[in-house]
């Protein structure tokens, strides 16, 4: 068994910043917003994601819930990244983030990391397998909200 990587890989400064000062906290009226709830049965983390979709764009997003630093920071970073993005770009970002979490070495190409922006700071989570579920909770819940949202003409 290899030794755990240093904690700095997990708790990067930008991750801690999002944990201490989470972005886009709150609720949106449903409808018109779509709400989805996610929880991690192992640790009791819970999250509700509210997305307001206008045409093809995520016009607004809000989050409530509680959880560990990784789940809270990841949800905050996710909300900041997808606000104003098109649905297609958002789904692409979700896919890229999940790749980042499952890549064995977390040495994704520079190009891929650049496209993720500050979210790339979560790449260290993949070295702590137990915590991956914490990081992906918000992203899976966002996907659920997008899937549940009525199709717009």
């Amino acid at each position: 068994m290899t030794q755990m990587p240093p904690l700095n890989d997990l708790y990067r400064e930008i991750v801690m910043d999002h944990y201490r000062t989470p972005r886009n906290r709150g609720e949106l009226p449903t409808p018109p917003a779509q709400r989805a709830d996610g929880h991690n049965p192992l640790c009791g983390d819970e999250i509700s994601v509210y997305v307001l979709i206008n045409g093809d764009v995520i016009e607004d997003i809000k989050l409530t819930g509680h959880g560990c630093s990784i789940s809270q920071a990841s949800s905050s970073m996710m909300s900041a990244a997808v606000k104003g993005r098109s649905l297609e770009q958002t789904r692409e970002l979700v896919a890229r983030f999940k790749e980042l979490m499952t890549s064995e070495t977390a040495d994704s190409s520079d190009q891929a990391l650049r496209e993720l922006g500050e979210i790339a700071a979560l790449s260290g989570v993949s070295k702590f397998p137990v915590r991956i579920k914490c990081a992906t909770l918000a992203w899976n819940t966002l996907t659920q909200a997008l899937d549940d949202a009525p199709q717009q003409g």
């Binding site: 755990m4 904690l7 997990l10 640790c43 959880g67 560990c68 630093s69 915590r131």
Partner: peptide, 21 residues
């Protein structure tokens, strides 16, 4: 400090405690 984070930091000290419900 969330119990998960407590447990993670403690692990760096070789300390095994259980986070969760």
């Amino acid at each position: 400090v969330h119990p998960h984070d407590v447990s993670q930091v403690l692990d760096q000290h070789g300390v095994c405690v259980r986070p969760g419900h």
